[in-house]
Design a protein around this nucleic acid. Structure first.
Lengths: 341, 341
DNA sequence: TTGTATGCGTTATCAG
DNA sequence: CTGATAACGCATACAA
């Protein structure tokens, strides 16, 4: 930051008028002599005066900045959500400050504290996969900072929430697999203690139960992370079972693709020998061989709605009467990695 | 932002001491009675005092924030760069403020202005594909804000630059295609007036020239954008030529994959009938059928180095003697969408 | 050992 | 129509 930026005071002293007059001229206050107004503006223009937003924030006790905390941005999922957030917030007079927790609870806590101290006005957050305690978010709320949680639910936290019905997505997926004749359906689940993981697992289990299919422990494997490399070993483990599955419902597209790769390398035909179904519907997914069947989530809308809810709080002075809980229903996208109906 | 956060003055008046004493106690100044220090700390703890970073920034004329401007974050390319930036900056006492220009010059200009007014201390920027004039960046420099440009060069702008040798990447790619027997090599180029587009095109042209291969206008098509959908029509156009190419060098993996899809749908075998080569080496690329040959770029390193250079300026008080220009050499990754050597 | 005064850049309030 | 003053929260030079 340059130590010599031109200030309102600089203009004032050059023109031999008071800073307040300059301030008023710049803001087009009524009841100012046209001459002074013009003089100020001319000089401001000439010297390229720029207001110091920091001073304004301090004065108004309002930074006009929204903190956005996500676990990572390399997946299409979160980057698309952020794009949705940005597109909404960009039209308001707020800015966003994007922070990455790196899937770490400790880093998330540090970030929240830092954002609070930076006096941000509100927070949009999707917690890390390690996060089980939400006191850091409650502290924000206690300090009058509205919090909107998206995608990953925070059980027990009272806040606005924009979620996806993962249970429904998983249920739809598994019912579809059953309807197409799959008898031994396995599940590659996500890291435990993540709300989405649990909901998808429950959807899987309930679909089996509803259709009177046995639940087999060895068909449920949880992967340690969200990227391709995390999927291959668990997939191999499933396929090498004595009684191998004829379908795999994976917790996301990366894992599904990894499973597809493993299955093909082991000589299985997809979907004849094994159906594979993902979750997310990333842009790449239709280009694989075979094109991946998956569950589509309205990522962009999640971002937009979360941002809109937060902005509505920021613009309404009073405290909230009741928290909103918005749940998007994901949709099955059937391509060719699963048998036709 | 809560209007009633506890301040140093609150603690001072509760303890009947002066704010400066509280300030000193909190910062562990030497020459303070242990009792007062303890009393202050106890109350600060009890009331959960948090410093107001805005006030500090204003006072020190230093926001400890770095602005990061990128065209978008949904591609793996930029999101991985940002992750690299974050991993370096996160270890310093700076924060990053990520801004998306949405590939728009106008939005980029607005962002730069906003960041400047927010008193950010430095900027990392990859300009939009529309940007041809860099006065907005020069203005930052004129105000003492160091600028580091990454990936997309800004011709004529004197600043630190962290670039990729796109020319070399393209040259390597095309020479390889020639070496494997391709005679009719087409190029799906990026949006014009982007430095990377020009460099890759030149690498393509020079490789052809060096090997005495004819350059055919109709083999060079520029796509309007960076995603899959932007590639299919241009790819079809190439393949439907009277004298269709036996190789396509695409400007990125998305376009390459799109081309591969089109080629397969039109009954071509890859790589027997047509070799296809991409650029970027995204995580998905090895999972396609056939696995995509491409040019790898050190995305994470680009981010880290850019951040390190900026931080070094921020930490050294004096102005720069000379700008750094760091150029990474990309590497060919041969998989199976191109003939073996 | 602690308190007072000042300033960072801006604006609202009250005087004039 | 315009100026002086105070305040936002904090740190520091200077005073005591």
């Amino acid at each position: 930051m340059n130590k010599n930026r031109v200030t309102i005071t600089d203009i004032a002293s050059e023109l031999n008028i008071s800073p307040s007059t300059v301030s008023r001229a710049l803001k087009d206050h009524p009841g100012l002599r046209k001459e002074t107004k013009d003089a100020v503006r001319a000089l401001a223009e000439k010297w390229d005066y720029q207001p110091n937003l920091l001073a304004l924030s301090l004065l108004h006790r309002k930074s006009n900045t929204i903190g956005v905390i996500v676990p990572e941005i390399t997946s299409h999922f979160f980057s698309a959500i952020i794009t949705g957030i940005q597109d909404v917030v960009g039209k308001s007079d707020y800015n966003i400050m994007i922070c990455l927790s790196n899937e770490s609870y400790d880093e998330e806590v540090v970030l929240v504290k830092k954002l609070m101290n930076m006096q941000i006005d509100g927070v949009l957050v999707s917690t890390s996969s390690e996060t089980e305690n939400f006191d850091h978010l409650r502290k924000l709320q206690k300090n009058g900072i509205p919090v909107v949680v998206f995608d990953r639910d925070c059980p027990g936290l009272e806040a606005d929430k924009v979620l996806v019905d993962d249970y429904s997505g998983a249920f739809q997926a598994v019912e579809y697999l059953i309807a197409t004749g799959c008898k031994n359906i396995a599940h590659l689940g996500g890291p435990l203690n993540l709300s989405t993981t649990g909901h998808r697992l429950n959807g899987y289990l309930d679909a089996l139960k509803k259709n009177n299919m046995p639940i087999r422990e060895e068909y449920i494997v949880h992967v340690p992370g969200f990227s391709h490399k995390d999927g291959s070993k668990p997939a191999k483990k499933l396929i090498q079972l004595d009684n191998p599955p004829d379908a795999i419902f994976a917790m996301n597209d990366n894992i599904a693709i990894s499973a597809m790769h493993v299955a093909k390398k082991m000589g299985l035909r997809i979907p004849e020998d094994i159906s594979i179904l993902g979750f997310d519907d990333e842009p790449h997914s239709s280009f694989f061989t075979p094109p991946l069947s998956t569950v589509w989530q309205p990522v962009y809308s999640i971002g937009m709605l979360s941002a809109r809810i937060l902005l509505s709080h920021l613009n309404s002075p009073d405290t909230v009467l009741e928290y909103r809980k918005e749940i998007f229903i994901p949709e099955l996208v059937i391509r060719s990695s699963s048998k036709a109906n």
